[in-house]
Design a protein around this nucleic acid. Sequence first.
DNA 1: TGAACCATGTAAGCCGTTACATGATTCG
DNA 2: CGAATCATGTAACGGCTTACATGGTTCA
Lengths: 182, 182
Amino acid sequence: MARENRTEYAILGLLRVGPRSGYDIKKVVEEHLSHFWHESLSHIYPVLHRLHDRGWVDREEGVRGGRQRHEYSLTRDGRDALEAWLAEPPEPQPPRNELLLKLFLGRHADPGDLIRHVREYRDRRRAELEELEGIAARLEEDATAAPDYPYWRITVSAGIRSARAAVDWSDEALEILGEVES
Amino acid sequence: MARENRTEYAILGLLRVGPRSGYDIKKVVEEHLSHFWHESLSHIYPVLHRLHDRGWVDREEGVRGGRQRHEYSLTRDGRDALEAWLAEPPEPQPPRNELLLKLFLGRHADPGDLIRHVREYRDRRRAELEELEGIAARLEEDATAAPDYPYWRITVSAGIRSARAAVDWSDEALEILGEVES
DNA sequence: TGAACCATGTAAGCCGTTACATGATTCG
DNA sequence: CGAATCATGTAACGGCTTACATGGTTCA
């Protein structure tokens, strides 16, 4: 089952909650899944068409505020496909970490550049960490009763732990690189 | 500078150390970069040809043990290109974590399946952690004097911290999922 | 002698991105 | 009135994977 289109299942998953337009899907991904998932709008539309052709989603053409708007909803087949996918173990993604590659080849680079790369990375991950901690706090405050709560908590925790490890590692790397430079 | 071929620079980087064949490159990636990088052999060959056409590598056709063998080495231009790439900040990869997506949609999945997914993941990351700790120990033992030592140490540490965080998170997730199930 | 490894490649094709194209509405 | 947002798409194409193809060598 390699080489499958993960966008299809991400879309199916979001439609599982309720009917949405392509534009909506993009916004949900950005607002709620952004720390572990990404979709580009131009890819969502053709996938939605394909899903429709396959009978996994229904399409309702409509208008909202004078603008055209196509709302998609899961069909029975779509729900089955989603559930089958959920039951399958996710296949591990082959890693490709550009920062680590550059660091691995660090001897042939300018130490100052490497330090800059790591600092940028650390700042990004630190910002992410703070954002996630805010999300976690809000989740604890007003969503503990939601049926999705345990699942959301798990994904937020993954982000927090990953970001924290990244920040700590960056500090260590910066220390080592500082010694190299001097 | 988006949409660039990272395989090109990975190859350039490995050739920086010394001349190698495509097959060699694949083996080096597997043996030394596997916890943060991946290349497939079928992709290496055409990229090598392209690099050759561009004048970034030289190609020496030869034979080793009766088998044909093409050895590539960096040209001056290739070295310059590599160094320019190393100086550029790595662009952050848009995240796509399938396991987290499935967990996020966990309410619509079978809890037992999710537990199995996380366990598999944890086992994989735990094995990785142990392997990396072994590598770290060996590095400390017999490579502290190598010029590459600080850089290798940094990348190994990244792997260890990431794997450790992943294992810890998995345990937490398993606990939460256990409560959900019962 | 057959499996594992060494060694190089081509072809097909999917996934996803970037760039391009269009047009309405809202709001400062 | 212009920028931001809502809203939907197509075209081109690059990156990488999978499958396929070939053939020599080593070693149990």
